[in-house]
Amino acid sequence: MKHAVIISLAALAVVLYLPSALLAAEINLSVAASLKEVMNELSDSYAKTHPGVTFKKNYGGSGALAKQIDNGAPADIFISANTEWMDYLKTKKLADEKSIATLTYNVLVFAGRPGLKVSSLQELVKLEKIAIGSPKSVPAGEYAVEAFKKAGIDKQLGKKLVMARDVRECLMYADRGEVDGAFVYKTDAQQVAKTAKILFTVPQEYYPRVTYPMALTVSGAANKDAAAFYGLLRSAEAQAVLKKHGFIVK
């Protein structure tokens, strides 16, 4: 009789647990570091209206994130800070091609300590240390290198460059005064910088427009909760949040 009671209680516990277990859902985000505040706000808002949905967020350089996905890291939605790394996932057949769309745009700026007299790319040659994201994996670094080449200063800056893992690390170096300045996105300098100030905006003719493509991964396309959140990213609500954080939506 005692064993029967124990078994009945165990069965009841399983029955009570199953509904909550079945309702639980997880969405894995792999997102360019510059979108951290936007994604946190949107995911927090979504979670409040969708009980049981939890998010796992991975922020970093777009190239590093794409390589992690290629190596098997869980990801339902990928958002890059350039088209190159989205194309990489397409080539690897890891992105759901029909879901690829542009989320938003940004602008590249040079930020450094207040009072530093630098107002153009050509004037960078007089500085000692300049932080950029590693061009091999960080789009902001790729955009910066492209600008150096078009301005004809790439050889002069070669030994002055300090490489960072992502755009936020660049900004951290500038905030701490460990470099004279750093190439970051306008949104980072406006929303996140503690001491560094925008010294000049890089003219658009020097580099490709900063574009953020987004997509469900192949596995994410099969996750109905991820697909629903992806729908939110394409909504007017998401555009309003992006604008609030200084991003360009057209």
Rank of each mutant, 00 (worst) to 15 (best):
2 K>A: 14
2 K>L: 14
3 H>E: 15
6 I>N: 01
7 I>W: 06
8 S>V: 13
9 L>M: 09
9 L>H: 01
11 A>Q: 00
12 L>P: 10
17 Y>L: 15
19 P>V: 00
21 A>V: 05
22 L>M: 12
23 L>G: 03
23 L>Q: 13
25 A>V: 06
28 N>I: 05
29 L>K: 10
31 V>N: 11
32 A>K: 01
35 L>P: 09
35 L>H: 11
37 E>S: 15
38 V>Q: 02
38 V>G: 03
42 L>H: 03
43 S>R: 11
47 A>T: 02
51 P>G: 07
56 K>M: 05
60 G>R: 07
61 G>Q: 12
62 S>T: 12
62 S>W: 04
64 A>M: 11
65 L>S: 07
69 I>Y: 04
70 D>Y: 15
71 N>M: 13
73 A>E: 09
75 A>S: 14
78 F>D: 01
81 A>W: 06
82 N>S: 15
87 D>R: 12
89 L>N: 04
90 K>P: 06
95 A>D: 04
95 A>T: 02
98 K>G: 00
99 S>H: 01
104 T>K: 05
109 V>Q: 13
121 L>N: 03
123 E>D: 12
127 L>M: 05
128 E>W: 01
132 I>T: 06
135 P>T: 11
136 K>M: 10
138 V>S: 15
138 V>Y: 01
146 E>T: 15
147 A>V: 07
150 K>Y: 09
155 K>I: 05
155 K>P: 00
156 Q>G: 03
157 L>H: 06
157 L>I: 06
159 K>M: 08
162 V>P: 03
163 M>H: 07
165 R>I: 09
165 R>S: 14
166 D>R: 06
166 D>Q: 05
169 E>P: 02
171 L>I: 07
172 M>H: 11
173 Y>W: 09
179 V>C: 09
179 V>L: 08
181 G>R: 12
182 A>T: 11
183 F>W: 08
183 F>M: 08
184 V>F: 11
187 T>S: 15
188 D>S: 12
189 A>I: 01
194 K>Q: 14
195 T>Q: 02
195 T>R: 05
197 K>T: 13
202 V>L: 09
202 V>H: 10
208 P>K: 10
209 R>K: 15
212 Y>T: 02
213 P>R: 11
213 P>I: 12
214 M>I: 14
216 L>A: 05
217 T>R: 11
217 T>S: 11
219 S>Y: 01
219 S>R: 10
220 G>S: 08
226 A>S: 08
228 A>P: 02
229 F>S: 04
232 L>I: 14
233 L>G: 00
235 S>Q: 08
242 L>K: 06
242 L>M: 10
242 L>Q: 06
243 K>A: 12
243 K>D: 08
246 G>F: 02
